[in-house]
Measured scan of single mutants.
Amino acid sequence: AIERGSKVKILRKESYWYGDVGTVASIDKSGIIYPVIVRFNKVNYNGFSGSAGGLNTNNFAEHELEVV
């Protein structure tokens, strides 16, 4: 089962992080479509409006993740 702290591989082909491994930061139990927040070591794009980097978290559905 996917739980907080799990290392997961991203299976969503259109994702910037496809094939990468991230760490589960949290799981939303409220029934939303993409409840699993995954944190990565790298950012997906340069930040804007003065922020240092881009996003390094993204929401995924459990079926888009594979525990490694």
Rank of each mutant, 00 (worst) to 15 (best):
A1K: 13
A1V: 12
A1E: 09
A1D: 07
A1Q: 12
A1G: 11
A1N: 09
A1R: 13
I2N: 02
I2V: 07
I2D: 01
I2M: 07
I2E: 01
I2Q: 01
E3Q: 14
E3D: 07
E3Y: 13
E3C: 15
R4W: 08
G5V: 02
G5T: 02
G5A: 02
G5D: 04
S6A: 13
S6N: 07
S6T: 13
K7L: 14
K7M: 12
K7I: 11
K7W: 14
K9Y: 04
K9T: 04
I10C: 09
I10M: 01
I10F: 03
I10H: 02
L11M: 06
L11F: 02
R12I: 04
R12M: 04
R12V: 04
R12L: 05
R12N: 04
R12W: 03
K13F: 12
K13L: 12
K13R: 12
K13D: 02
E14V: 06
E14M: 08
E14H: 07
S15R: 01
S15I: 03
S15P: 01
Y16E: 07
Y16H: 05
Y16V: 07
Y16G: 03
Y16R: 04
W17E: 00
Y18P: 00
Y18I: 03
Y18V: 03
Y18G: 00
Y18K: 01
G19L: 13
G19V: 06
D20Q: 08
D20E: 13
V21G: 02
V21L: 07
V21D: 02
V21F: 07
G22R: 04
G22A: 03
V24K: 00
V24A: 01
V24M: 01
V24S: 00
A25E: 14
A25V: 15
A25D: 13
S26M: 13
S26E: 12
S26F: 13
I27Y: 08
I27W: 05
D28Q: 06
D28Y: 06
D28A: 08
D28T: 04
D28S: 09
K29D: 10
S30R: 08
S30P: 04
G31N: 15
I32L: 11
I32W: 09
I32A: 12
I33C: 14
I33H: 10
I33W: 07
I33V: 11
Y34E: 05
P35F: 15
P35W: 15
P35D: 09
P35K: 14
V36F: 15
V36H: 00
V36E: 00
V36R: 00
V36L: 04
I37E: 09
I37W: 14
I37M: 14
I37A: 08
I37D: 01
V38F: 01
V38N: 00
V38L: 01
V38D: 00
V38P: 00
R39W: 13
R39M: 13
R39H: 07
F40V: 02
F40T: 00
F40K: 00
N41S: 13
K42M: 05
K42T: 09
K42W: 09
V43E: 13
V43W: 14
V43F: 14
V43H: 12
N44Y: 15
Y45P: 15
Y45G: 15
Y45Q: 15
Y45T: 15
Y45S: 15
N46L: 10
N46T: 08
G47N: 08
G47R: 03
G47P: 13
G47L: 04
G47K: 05
G47W: 06
G47D: 15
G47M: 04
F48N: 13
F48Y: 09
F48C: 15
F48W: 07
S49E: 15
S49F: 11
S49L: 11
S49Q: 11
S49G: 11
S49P: 10
G50F: 07
G50I: 07
G50S: 10
G50E: 14
G50A: 10
S51C: 15
S51L: 10
A52W: 10
A52D: 14
A52V: 11
A52G: 12
G53W: 05
G53P: 11
G54F: 10
G54I: 09
L55C: 15
L55F: 12
N56H: 08
N56K: 06
N56G: 05
N56F: 12
N56R: 10
N56Q: 09
T57C: 15
T57P: 04
T57V: 09
T57S: 09
N58S: 15
N58T: 09
N58E: 15
N58K: 05
N58L: 07
N59S: 11
A61Q: 06
A61T: 03
E62Q: 09
E62V: 13
E62G: 05
E62N: 07
H63W: 13
H63I: 07
E64F: 04
E64P: 01
E64Y: 03
L65W: 03
L65C: 04
L65G: 00
E66G: 03
V67N: 05
V67Q: 05
V68N: 02
V68F: 06
